[in-house]
């Protein structure tokens, strides 16, 4: 774009500006069509949360029932359990995993052996690419009361075998810490990349002033990560109620269902197994509304406090 072209450009009409660029619209068309069908039409279809969906009458012909589906959810015993379980699981997850990624990045960045750092990074990223099913399969295998390696160790030390997956009070810890095991390396990438932007002059100046390495990491590197941390924190809070279906569902069994039934797994069972489609959609909709409120609130608060916000 030349400087001369700028004032002229503003006066041109939309059609003039599109001239010669119509093919760019064609570039976008397949994506727009697919996204409209599989993303926007379902958004419009959310109205079945306020209807009594009957397969015969279809989405648009089923009778309106107002807020009945929502009332039914909040009057059922499941509302309290699933909302509590979801909140506890995702807040625990967020609070435990968020600092781990930051600390790992800070440690890796200050490791003196560059070669060794590369090895650690390659290994800690690897679990990120393991599928949820395999990850959960490994957990169940390792923790199995009969043949699991963990219980073999416990038994050889003279203890009793523990049925880890059957103990409700252990389920959340297993879920969260296996998540950290799998994700810490990958989540640290973004912080590690950001740390490359710290100017060495800060460190040199601090060394001259007699700061130790630990002090420098704490007072130079860590504050440098603040904007990135804020951004990720806001985004994470926005999805606090949409914590992954796949893993919770994969780790569920009859013994731990009391703590492992979260909103999304309940939505699946009500909708796809019980075929109570309107009821399921209502619960799902409640879930997304709460997510949006959380996102907007956290964004507002962090914006006020630190000046960092998404928009």
């Amino acid at each position: 774009m030349t400087v001369n072209a700028v004032p002229v450009k503003k006066k041109r009409s939309f059609l003039q500006r599109m001239q010669g660029n119509w093919d760019l619209l064609f570039f976008c068309l397949p994506g727009i069509v697919i996204t409209t069908i599989y993303h926007y039409i379902p958004i419009y279809g959310v109205q079945i949360a306020f209807r009594n969906y009957k397969a015969k009458k279809g989405i648009w012909g089923s009778d309106w029932v107002g807020l009945k589906n929502f009332e039914r959810f909040f009057n059922s015993a499941y509302a309290g359990t699933t909302i509590t379980n979801t909140l506890l699981l995702s807040v625990y997850s967020l609070v435990a995993s968020f600092p781990v990624a930051v600390i790992l990045a800070l440690m890796l960045n200050s490791l003196r052996h560059k070669r060794y750092r590369k090895v650690i990074q390659a290994v800690t990223y690897a679990p990120h690419f393991i599928s949820t099913v395999v990850m959960c399969g490994m957990l169940i295998l390792f923790l199995s009361p009969r043949v699991g390696v963990v219980n073999t160790v416990i038994k050889s030390l003279g203890g009793e075998a523990i049925n880890f997956m059957g103990k409700s009070y252990m389920w959340r810890h297993i879920y969260v810490w296996s998540g950290i095991w799998q994700g810490m390396g990958w989540s640290s990438v973004i912080y590690f990349a950001a740390l490359a932007g710290v100017s060495p002059e800060y460190h040199e100046a601090a060394i001259v002033d007699g700061a130790t390495k630990f002090q420098r990491v704490l007072h130079i590197d860590l504050p440098f990560l603040a904007p990135t941390m804020t951004m990720l924190l806001i985004l994470n809070c926005g999805s606090i109620l949409s914590i992954g279906f796949e893993k919770a569902f994969a780790l569920q069994n009859d013994l731990n269902i009391g703590v492992s039934e979260i909103i999304s797994t309940y939505v699946y069972k009500v909708g796809l197994i019980n075929r109570d489609i309107s009821f399921s959609t209502a619960i799902d909709l409640f879930n997304s509304v709460v997510n949006s409120i959380l996102l907007i609130t956290v964004n507002f608060i962090t914006g006020k406090m630190s000046g960092n916000s998404l928009w």
Binding site: M1, R17, T35, H39, Y40, I41, P42, G45, I277, D284
Partner: peptide
């Protein structure tokens, strides 16, 4: 930058990151 529909189409996609129909409405489609 000189594609005039750049902003509206980007917005069209960004919206889908935050708003969705959920499990069952998508299933029905």
């Amino acid at each position: 930058k000189d594609f005039p529909l750049n902003k509206p189409i980007t917005l069209f996609y960004i919206v889908t990151m935050f708003v969705g129909g959920g499990m069952m409405p998508t299933y029905l489609v």
